[in-house]
Amino acid sequence: MSHSTKPMLSAEPVEFSGELLAKMEEAKNLFPNGKEKSALLKMLHLAQAEFGWVSVPTMDKIADLLSIQPVEVYEVATFYTMFHLEPVGKYVFEVCRTGPCMLVGSDQLIEHIGKKLNIGMGETTSDGLFTLKTAECLGGCGYGPLLQCRHRFHEHLTPEKVDELIEQYKRGEIEPGAL
């Protein structure tokens, strides 16, 4: 079990934009009256897309919007691996390391990215652009090795392709794949 056990950092109070609030309201409205808590995961995704990570004040605000206790949000956010509970780089590379990807070279790819960006696992580059993480099976086993960044899959990777990908991200050429 490796769900987050790190203490969640406190952070500055957050302000949800009108647009974000509208999206959250829309997420809530997908569920019957009294069952709006079902929108919690979607709301956490929306907040993360906006702020890059999910802080305690963000979670408190979501709890408020759902009229539930803050702890009901904390326990969920810490269970699911997609939510970043501390600040991360602008682009988080989540590289799949599970069996089928390993068979086609994910170990070597992860090592290459670490060297290229000069960071260790879970670390962020000093310019705040890139964070390197590993992920368990991302569901693209036939297209590995692969990584996901901002809901976009990058598949059939080689060291050369990753080098180019990093440059493309630096130049701001790659839009989020969703949200």
Binding site: A39, L41, K42, L44, V76, E136
Partner: peptide, 9 residues
Amino acid sequence: VVTPGGGAY
């Protein structure tokens, strides 16, 4: 309705 998970096998 379609709704997302959050990363958990």
